[in-house]
Design a protein around this nucleic acid. Sequence first.
DNA 1: ATAAACTTGACAAAATTACTAGAGTATTAT
DNA 2: ATAATACTCTAGTAATTTTGTCAAGTTTAT
Lengths: 144, 144
Amino acid sequence: MLKLSTKGQYGVRAMFEVAKGYPDVPITIKEISKRQDVSVAYLEQILNKLRKGGLIVSVKGPGGGYILSRGPEAISIGEILLELEGPVAITACQDPASGCVRVDGCVTALLWKALGEKIEGFLRTITLNDLLNGSLREITKVGA
Amino acid sequence: MLKLSTKGQYGVRAMFEVAKGYPDVPITIKEISKRQDVSVAYLEQILNKLRKGGLIVSVKGPGGGYILSRGPEAISIGEILLELEGPVAITACQDPASGCVRVDGCVTALLWKALGEKIEGFLRTITLNDLLNGSLREITKVGA
DNA sequence: ATAAACTTGACAAAATTACTAGAGTATTAT
DNA sequence: ATAATACTCTAGTAATTTTGTCAAGTTTAT
């Protein structure tokens, strides 16, 4: 349960590759495709969304590619996923896009809200930098 | 992102209704269907899974229905969802059922693992009793 | 007996996911 | 200028998952 679509997964991995080139080496889609084993065409879609979301900038022409628009310590996993998959919305009730009629009468509404906030909070604390320098190992251990 | 299927959502709401009858009033599928606005046929599937998982017991014949097999303070939301939707598995890598080839080389594996554990931990702490007595309101506020 | 209520497995419509295809635009090296 | 590189954009589509329905049972209380 609570699966993340491949778009989100690939997106994070793609951003990890782009982050490696920060601040001055553009990474091409082709290169990301090779390193992360995701098709070029699919990555185009993903990176396009991330660009429109302002997380990366593109450089066209030979020698071009993508570069992080901010430092890797300033881009959280939460931001990446938000751009690719929209806000955390455990249930339709919690999705700002759809809304729910019963809200007040629904005993579980608070539960899903709390869970969603928990998840978002966690994802906001992890940045691309954490992926780059492997500091996740500690976070995982503590289980905080 | 990170949606929960209706099966899980309805399941929790159904368990909430069953919990109301604990320890001696069996609740029929028909009654749950009315109160929670979910079709009888679909509830049959859901409650069957929960029964096989040992969370509820069924009483056949007239006057029958479903009863919690343990007190509402001893049944967590996590257990309910686990039975209906399987373990939290943000990515296929994290799913014990499928596994992942690259695991070690995958920079994000630890991230999804940590997130999954965070979610499971949270869901384990919330019980049906919390839904019954409305103690969720505080949990939500604290944001702990 | 008979009606209430659960049990089970098969099946199907709808929605979502996970892509692929192809034509177009911008930039740079020569 | 021209060719090569690389990003941009819109559709379309196959596979999968979700979200159920249906029908034919079985069990039990009265």
